[in-house]
């Protein structure tokens, strides 16, 4: 098994774990962690994509930018989670949902 196949398998596993986690997780902080897993899978996919296509530089520079952009999203999501905990006293999703329809 060569390196690329291995990376593709790891990417698929991370994506699978992430999507499954999104379905079963009920805690806001854990949701943010699961989102991070998904993004890390894509970062790895970019590195592999750059290598496969013969332009490793593009893949690596994109991967670095994705890490930055994604950290911003994680920070915003965590800030919201902090506000939810402060105002509503819980991080459990079924308990905070009131909007319907």
């Amino acid at each position: 098994m060569n390196l690329i196949t291995l990376i593709v398998i790891v990417v698929a596993c991370l994506l699978g774990v992430g999507l499954y986690g999104l379905l079963i997780t009920r805690n806001l902080i854990k949701i943010v962690i699961v989102l991070q897993l998904l993004v890390k899978a894509v970062v790895l996919a970019f590195v592999a994509a750059g290598k496969v296509s013969g332009h490793p530089g593009i893949g690596e520079s994109v991967a670095a930018t994705v890490i930055v952009a994604d950290t911003v999203v994680a920070a915003v999501a965590l800030a919201l989670a902090v506000q939810v905990r402060m105002r509503l006293g819980t991080l459990d999703i079924p308990k905070i949902s009131s909007l319907r329809g």
Binding site: L22, I31, L38, A77, V84, I96, S97, S98
Partner: peptide, 22 residues
């Protein structure tokens, strides 16, 4: 941010939109 509905809407939006962009 002092209104529960607004926080809930924001959280839903962040999570769904983030999965979409991934």
């Amino acid at each position: 941010r002092e209104q529960p509905g607004s926080l809930e809407a924001g959280m839903k939006y962040v999570v769904q939109s983030a999965v979409g962009s991934v």
